[in-house]
Design a protein around this nucleic acid. Structure first.
Lengths: 229, 229
DNA sequence: ACCTGAACACCGTTCAAGT
DNA sequence: ACCTGAACACCGTTCAAGT
C-alpha cells in the first residue's frame, strides 16, 4: 500500500530536459561555449548524441535554456521594496555578478534578441524606469540604455577577467590591460594612454555601478521628479 | 625607360592580405558570420584553403581585420570641429549605421575585448568625454557606458532587422516585434506590454540618439559645465 | 616566398533501428 | 515514448609537396 502510483517510474538515470540543461550549465562554466558539445554532453549523460535531440530542439535552444536556468533565481531574488533607483542598481549588480560567474550568458543574451531571459531582464529594468516618471515615449530608449549597458560592461568585464586568468592576482590583470594601453601610440591614442594609469586599483563593480548612476542621473536631469503634491 | 621597376611584378591575381580581407567583407555582408568559411573564401579567391593561412593567422584574426576594414573609413570621416556632444552623437550614429549595414561587426566588436577597432572607437568617444570636463577618475566609466550603449543597441537593432527581414516593409517588422510583446502574459510582463503599443512608428535611429542624449544628460547633471571663467 | 590540396580532428544534426 | 549510435555533411587548421 505504500506509494502505489506516487512517483511514476522516475528512474534514477532517466533523461530529461532539466537534467540536460543542468549538465550543460556545468559544462559551460567549466569549459566555456566552445566546450559545450553534443558529444561531450551525451558522454557526460551516458547516452548517444541523438538522445538529447528528443528533449531539446537544437544547440541554440539549449543555450537559451541554460541562460534561463542561471538567470531565473537571480531575477526573483533581487530588487524588492526599495526605491526605483535601488531596484535598478540591485538587478544591475545581480546580473553583473551572474555574468562574472557564468561568462557565457553575456554573449548569449546579446546574441539572441527576443529570448525569454532577455525579456525578463527588460521587464525587471523597465518597471522601476516607469516608476521614476519617465514618459511613455521614452521608456523604451531608457530601458534599452540600461539593459545594453549592463550586458555590455558585464560581458566586457568577464571577457577581460578570463583573458588574463592565471597570470597573477586580480590587480595584476588590470595592470596588464593598463600596461598595453600605456604602450599605445601617443599620437593616435592620447585618451586611452591618459586613463591607463587610472585603471589599476579600481574595483570593477564600483566602476560598473558608477555607470549605472550616470544613466540614473540622466533620467533625473531630463525628467526631474515632481516635488510636493 | 618607361616604368622600369615601378610596379614590382604585381600580378593581377596575386593573393594578398588586403584582397583576402576585402573578399571576407563581401562574404560576411552577403551570408553572415556563419557563411564565412575558409573553403568558400578560398573558392572565391580561386585557391586552396591553406593559401589563406599564409597571409592570415586564423579566422579570429580575419574577423578582426574585416571589422577594422569596415570601421576605419567611418572613424576618420565623422565628428570634426563641432561641440563634444555633437562629436559623440556623430560617431555614435556613424557606428550605428555601420552595424546596420554590416551586422556582423556588432557581435565581433563585443566579443573581442582588446581589438584595434574597439580601441579606436573607445578613443574616439573618450576624447569628447574628456572635453566635457568629466573628472579623470570617471572618464573610463563614462566612455564605457557610451561605447557599450552604442554597440549593444546597434547590435540589437541589426539583429531584429535581419530576423524579420523579408516579412514586409519596415514598419511591419516593428509591428511583429510589438505584436509578440503585446501577447505576453500581462501578469508577468506588464512593462513590455505597456510599451508594445508605443513601439511601431518609431524611427530606430531617433530612439537610438535619444539614448545617447540620456547619457549626455547624465554627464551634464553630474558634472555641470563651468560657467564664465 | 608563396601556393596547392589532401588529410586530420573535429563539429551539429539526422535517422534507421532498437526497447 | 524514448533511446542508441552510425552516418551525413560539414567545419578550422595543418602540412608535405610543389613552383
Amino acid at each position: 500500500m505504500a506509494g502505489k502510483t506516487r512517483t511514476p517510474a522516475r528512474r534514477e538515470d532517466a533523461l530529461s530536459r532539466e537534467r540536460i540543461v543542468d549538465a550543460a550549465v556545468v559544462m559551460l562554466d567549466a569549459t566555456g561555449e566552445s566546450g559545450l558539445t553534443f558529444r561531450a554532453l551525451s558522454a557526460e549523460l551516458k547516452t548517444g548524441p541523438g538522445a538529447i535531440y528528443w528533449h531539446v530542439a537544437n544547440k541554440s535552444e539549449l543555450l537559451v535554456a541554460a541562460t534561463g536556468a542561471v538567470l531565473a533565481p537571480v531575477m526573483v531574488a533581487e530588487g524588492e521594496g526599495a526605491t526605483p533607483q535601488e531596484a535598478i542598481r540591485a538587478t544591475a549588480l545581480a546580473v553583473f555578478d551572474a555574468i562574472d560567474r557564468h561568462p557565457w550568458i553575456g554573449s548569449e543574451l546579446s546574441r539572441t534578441p527576443g529570448s525569454p531571459p532577455l525579456l525578463q531582464l527588460f521587464e525587471r529594468i523597465g518597471r522601476p524606469v516607469q516608476a521614476l516618471g519617465v514618459p511613455v515615449v521614452a521608456q523604451f530608449a531608457v530601458a534599452s540604455a540600461l539593459v545594453n549597458y549592463i550586458l555590455g560592461v558585464g560581458g566586457q568585464n568577464a571577457a577581460t577577467t578570463r583573458a588574463y586568468e592565471g597570470e597573477a592576482t586580480r590587480p595584476e590583470f588590470l595592470g596588464t590591460v593598463a600596461g598595453r594601453w600605456a604602450q599605445l601610440d601617443p599620437a593616435r591614442f592620447p585618451f586611452l594612454r591618459s586613463i591607463a594609469s587610472q585603471l589599476p586599483g579600481h574595483d570593477d563593480r564600483v566602476v560598473f555601478l558608477d555607470g549605472v548612476d550616470l544613466i540614473l542621473a540622466g533620467i533625473a536631469g531630463l525628467w526631474p521628479p515632481a516635488t510636493g503634491d
